[in-house]
């Protein structure tokens, strides 16, 4: 990709950096803009807003998952779930899950992107290759790791034992000391390649001239990274930081398919707790109150993020 005209890239970078926010508005295209935004907005209204409204209503009733006529109970469910002491654990775990995941994935992805943003034999293959863990279904990922980490016949324990690193096999997904970090890593393994791609996307827009100039001025590697590279990937890190956190907190499938929230609730994050309350304790009203509360929390998070986190140059035009 970086093979074609570097001047074009420099031009891009300039456009981005300048930020067309203040540039002349073309009034005729305002109509077009609204028209083009309409289909997706209507689509989302029908598939997100409508069910969401229904969900909020349910959260104000004593609905049972298995039926019966729900009765309006006001905010009782919210009081129950916020005060009965069962939500604190899952909430903290969700925070740890999101923060831990963000750190691990960002480090892995930034490192991988820097490595892949070089010209070397097979760079195209390498860039496609690392996407493999992102393109396979979660259920395959879950099965693959459950099996490789199996304490009885899993290859990981086998290798660790043959190397003499451990005595008894470790039950990575069943031991309370290991389960949380193991699932966090499995989830990172699944998602960091995609993040790598996004960072790589930003990196390829850094024109070689910038590095050239920095080197001429005698900048150290670290200075090059912080003054040239980082500003370019900051906008991506910004959106990834926002969306990645939302995605990450809402992750359910990989946890459910590997540990079901166990052992001893060590991997019971908010979505798992919501699921259990709705489909194992059958308290649909309370489960809805939990998910609406979680969504509210995430909205506040998103607001604060957008308000206070520096977004970097190129995104100025949009947010």
């Amino acid at each position: 990709m970086s093979t074609t005209g570097s001047s074009a890239q420099a031009a891009n970078a300039e456009t981005d950096a300048a930020g067309p926010k203040g540039s002349a508005v073309v009034p005729v295209r305002a109509r077009l803009g609204r028209l083009f935004a309409a289909p997706i907005m209507i689509w989302l209204a029908l598939t997100i807003a409508l069910p969401l409204g229904y969900c909020i209503w349910i959260s104000l009733t004593n609905a049972n998952t298995m039926g019966g006529t729900p009765r309006f109970v006001g905010l009782a469910n919210y009081v129950t779930v916020l005060t009965d002491g069962t939500v604190g654990g899952p909430f903290l775990r969700s925070l740890a899950w999101a923060i831990g995941g963000a750190i691990i994935q960002t480090l892995l992805a930034a490192g991988a992107a820097l490595l892949l943003n070089r010209r070397f034999a097979g760079q195209h293959i390498a860039r496609t290759w690392i996407m493999a863990s992102w393109v396979v279904p979660t259920i395959v990922t879950a099965f693959l790791w459950r099996w490789m980490l199996n304490a009885d016949f899993g290859v990981v324990n086998h290798v660790l034992q043959s190397l003499g690193l451990i005595g008894r096999p470790i039950d990575f997904l069943g031991d309370p000391d290991f389960a949380f970090i193991t699932v966090t890593l499995v989830n990172a393994w699944r998602w960091f390649p995609f993040m790598t791609l996004l960072i790589l996307a930003a990196l390829t827009r850094v024109a070689p001239e910038y590095y050239e100039a920095a080197r001429v001025e005698g900048a150290t590697s670290w200075q090059v990274f912080t003054r040239v590279t980082l500003p370019f990937i900051q906008p991506v890190l910004y959106v990834v930081g926002l969306l990645g956190t939302l995605w990450s907190i809402n992750v359910f499938d990989i946890i459910w398919l590997t540990t079901k929230g166990g052992p001893l609730d060590m991997t019971e994050t908010m979505p798992v707790a919501i699921y259990e309350r709705a489909f194992q304790q059958f308290r649909l009203g309370e489960a809805s109150a939990m998910s609406v509360s979680l969504a509210l929390f995430l909205l506040v998070f998103a607001y604060c993020f957008i308000r206070f986190v520096p977004r970097g140059a190129t995104e100025q035009e949009v947010i």
């Binding site: 199996n150 009885d152 008894r168 096999p169 309370p176 052992p263």
Partner: peptide
């Protein structure tokens, strides 16, 4: 029992018995 029983459900005891472990 083996050390992995913390994540055993139905399949694992059967596999272990079949494997002679």
């Amino acid at each position: 029992s083996p050390s992995g029983i913390g994540s055993w459900t139905w399949a694992e005891p059967q596999d272990a018995l079949n494997a002679g472990s």
